[in-house]
Design a protein around this nucleic acid. Structure first.
Length: 264
DNA sequence: ATCGGTACCTGCACGC
DNA sequence: TGCGTGCAGGTACCGA
């Protein structure tokens, strides 16, 4: 579900929680905590105020007044929901002085952790794609001996791009997903940089992509899926040249592209 | 140090 | 109706 635009949309929808007090925290699923101790986490959160909510790539950091962070990653199917009733896949419940925040995740690929310090796994991410200067982006491309699609998915390169936006950016830049990153020449690094920025910016404005069940914390769907040009459009005509969109595996992920518009 | 392949989980769509 | 298969927005870990 959630790549940078979806996580950004979720963060914006839970911004009103800043200043709210956590009355109690309940964790129902150990797997989601990735080895963390549910009792210790609950104790660290209980009675504290939420000082801030920020996004780092696909991570959500809820800073806790008095110290520490609740670190949230939505994985593939994670959802944060304001209000509503707990369901079969509700793994965490934060009861607030006004309202409730639920964490739902059917596939359990997401995680919730408490960190006293700024978390190392967030610190070692690459730069934000909407903030990194072009020169730094281009220099990093040159250093990587891997396929460009795999590199875009690598969170140490830039943070927040996932399968949808990697495919959409490569299409707009006219670059084949199997192209080698370090071999991109001429205006192609610039075109890719601009395409990544444009796709992410447009998707944020659209509230993200709702492929199956993605919604923000208020239950609102995004509508950027209506603007996808290649993602999950295998066999459909290219919007530019009518050539059927093809699908290929890169780094074990489905990659959708136009064989005529996108060159290696 | 970097890479690609695999594992982790549930649900859904599809063909038989 | 049910069963098997393949697919799905994610990352972590392993061995080469």
């Amino acid at each position: 579900m959630p790549e940078l635009p979806e996580v950004e949309t979720v963060v914006r929808s839970i911004a009103p929680l800043v200043g709210r007090r956590i009355v109690s925290a309940e964790f129902r699923c150990l797997r989601i905590l990735r080895g963390g101790d549910p009792d210790r986490m609950a104790a660290r959160l209980q009675g504290r105020k939420i000082a801030g909510v920020k996004r780092y790539g696909k991570f959500i950091l809820m800073s806790i007044k008095g110290g520490g962070y609740l670190v949230i990653h939505l994985g593939m199917t994670g959802r944060l929901l304001l209000g509503g009733d707990p369901g079969k896949h509700t793994h965490a419940i934060l009861t607030l002085d006004r309202g409730v925040l639920l964490y739902d995740d059917s596939r359990q690929f997401g995680c919730l952790q408490f960190s006293e310090e700024f978390p190392a796994r967030v610190a070692k991410l690459g730069p934000e794609p909407l903030e990194v200067p072009f020169e730094e982006f281009a220099a990093a491309l040159k250093r990587r001996k891997t396929r460009i699609k795999a590199l875009l998915l690598n969170q140490a390169f830039v943070r927040g791009v996932g399968n949808i936006y990697a495919d959409e950016a490569l299409f707009r830049a006219g670059i084949h997903p199997l192209a080698m990153a370090y071999r991109l020449r001429g205006d192609r690094p610039r075109r890719l940089f601009d395409a990544v920025r444009a796709v992410l910016t447009e998707a944020i404005a659209a509230g993200g992509s709702s492929i199956s069940d993605y919604v923000d914390a208020e239950g609102r769907k995004g509508f950027f899926q209506l603007s996808h040009r290649v993602y999950q459009r295998t066999g459909e005509p290219c919007v530019t040249c009518r050539t059927p969109i093809r699908r290929v595996l890169v780094a074990q992920r489905s990659s959708h592209f136009c064989p005529k518009c996108q060159k290696r």
